[in-house]
């Protein structure tokens, strides 16, 4: 099992994702890109920049905090603090690209979909993740995947670190609590 992906790997994965977006959505129509806090937000920012350079002129960007929608709120002990959600455009009838860093059990995505439904009824929602590590507990799959990580033990964490929040671009698979 490969456990280390460096800045070049991250860059290639993001470039591949931009290519996939360019064939999935049309550049002359509106597109909403919504990142899930924290690293999904950073990814959404980067993707927006790269897509604008490729002629996507009508991108709206938003940020979703899913804390209030988690299905494990009553089970995880102290609840995390809530940070602001910022979706300042009308989702109704829009194609939406939902962005997260790692896809694991699918529960965050389930929560994000429930949250999005409170903002309106998009035309379509596609899911983009930088890394799919397997291990789903819900029937949820990503439409656009940067990296597929194979055979990651459940008790391991997949840590995506991005310059904007972590001073470095890398993906590291490591045992929990290290």
């Amino acid at each position: 099992m490969r456990t280390q992906y460096d800045a070049d790997d991250v860059k290639r994965a993001i470039a591949a994702l931009v290519d996939q977006i360019a064939v999935t959505f049309s550049h002359d129509k509106p597109l909403g890109i919504i990142g899930i806090r924290t690293r999904g937000e950073v990814l959404a920012q980067r993707l927006t920049q790269l897509l604008k350079a490729r002629g996507f002129a009508r991108i709206e960007r938003g940020t979703l905090d899913i804390t209030l929608y988690r299905d494990d709120l009553s089970e995880i002990g102290p609840k995390p603090l809530v940070r602001p959600t910022a979706v300042d455009f009308d989702l109704a009838g829009m194609p939406i690209l939902l962005v997260d860093d790692v896809l694991f059990t699918g529960r965050s995505i389930r929560a994000a979909l429930t949250a999005l439904a409170d903002f309106g009824r998009p035309a379509v929602i596609r899911l983009l993740v930088l890394a799919d590590r397997g291990g789903r507990e819900l029937p949820i799959q990503a439409d656009l995947v940067g990296l597929t990580l194979k055979d990651v033990p459940r008790e391991h964490r997949v840590n995506v670190r991005l310059k904007e929040t972590d001073q470095v671009d890398e993906i590291v698979v490591e045992p929990r609590n290290t």
Binding site: D65, T67, L68, Y69, L73, L81, V82, R83, P84, T85, A86, T114, A115, D118, F119, G120
Partner: peptide, 23 residues
Amino acid sequence: RVILDQADAFKEVSTRSIKKVPA
């Protein structure tokens, strides 16, 4: 400050078309 910052996060909920979260 924790309470005030949390209030910032909750303020947004009241601006949504559906002003309710399942927390």
